[in-house]
């Protein structure tokens, strides 16, 4: 059986990474990310009521159910519902209604449908003895276009964190390991962003930076497992081993740990995504993309790259050192 040797296939990994990253950059430039989870353009149906005077909790449930019935009969799907409580800002006079339900719709709702829904809701309210008091409930449609969301983290921050951590890696494991680690962290951040752009997974506006940061951190952690195994190989071997043998031996001990760690992280993300509310699910589940990059790079791309990096560093370290020229030649002298 042919043994799978990823450290011998660097051109293939470079080609795969290049294709994904370049395609991702083009899509990022042309379309950006799919920030549908942020509901960048939405219609809202607001139902205002006076919770202190007229509408108790039982009536609130009734009102909510009544609205949902009308949306369903008009073929509208509610993307989200939020409860709001009125508050006075500065010198603003008290608002006539103290609380409201806000139903969000991300698909386009025509003016006719809006009018029809509003009229049907009002008719049903009037027909309901509990809700039909004078001015007890007020309904209104709104439109919203988000111009800015929380997407202003300084992107350089992750790079600074990773570089500082890699300085430590360079001291403890060697400059070659740190250089490969740096390449992998940058690669994984870009790879994750590219995958997000290509797959068009709906995310929140701030999510791409957060995902890139997570990918870079995970990449660092997984690459460290390789570094530890490489250090162990160096310690255990009696004579200096060549780059390929070192990577091969380290890979044999590291890949299972990398797979287990990445698997647990993926399981935690899946668990959170599976059990959480839709809002949290939309924030967390796409984080699986941030696991794909580091796993690919530490299991396939990283070892292949490190063979070349280590070979170059071995060559450098041999320069200027006396070479073994053989017993006979030494004797001749």
């Amino acid at each position: 059986m042919n043994k799978f040797r990823p450290w011998k296939k660097l051109p293939i990994w470079i080609a795969i990474s290049a294709v994904v990253i370049i395609a991702g950059i083009i899509l990022m430039a042309l379309l950006g990310f799919n920030t549908a989870a942020e509901k960048p353009q939405n219609s809202q149906f607001e139902v205002k009521y006076n919770v202190a005077v007229d509408i108790d909790e039982k009536k609130q449930d009734k009102l909510e159910g009544l609205c949902e019935e009308v949306f369903k009969s008009n073929g509208l799907t509610v993307a989200d519902m939020q409860k709001a409580t009125s508050v006075a800002i500065s010198n603003e006079s008290a608002q006539p209604y103290t609380a409201s339900f806000v139903f969000y719709f991300t698909s386009e709702v025509s003016a006719e449908t809006q009018e029809k829904v509003q009229s049907e809701v009002q008719t049903k309210i009037k027909a309901d003895a509990d809700l039909s008091g004078e001015d007890m409930v007020y309904t209104v449609w709104h439109s919203e276009t988000v111009t800015s969301a929380a997407d202003y983290v300084w992107r350089g921050a992750v790079a600074v964190g990773i570089v500082v951590a890699l300085v430590y890696v360079a001291i403890r494991f060697g400059v070659g390991s740190a250089l490969t680690g740096l390449t992998l962290a940058v690669h994984d951040a870009l790879f994750t962003l590219a995958l997000l752009a290509i797959t068009r997974i709906p995310v929140y506006a701030a999510a791409p930076v957060w995902f890139a940061a997570t990918a870079a951190l995970l990449s660092l952690a997984l690459w460290l497992i390789h570094c530890m195994k490489l250090r162990a190989v160096k310690k255990e071997s009696q004579v200096p081993v060549d780059a390929e043998t070192a990577v091969e031996t380290a890979y044999a001990g590291a890949w299972k740990w990398i797979a287990v760690c990445a698997g647990i992280v993926a399981a935690v993300i899946l668990l959170t995504g599976a059990l959480a509310t839709p809002g949290v699910r939309a924030a967390v589940l796409p984080l699986l993309v941030a696991v794909v990059g580091p796993v690919y790079s530490t299991l396939l791309f990283g070892p292949a790259l490190h063979v070349h990096v280590r070979r170059a560093f071995d060559k450098l370290s041999r320069k200027g050192k006396p070479k073994y020229v053989g017993k006979e030649k030494q004797a001749d002298k």
């Binding site: 202003y152 300084w154 921050a157 992750v158 964190g161 701030a206 957060w210 940061a213």
Partner: peptide
């Protein structure tokens, strides 16, 4: 070090 440089939420 990421914390020292980044802004919320990162």
């Amino acid at each position: 070090f990421t914390f020292f440089v980044a802004l919320p939420a990162l």
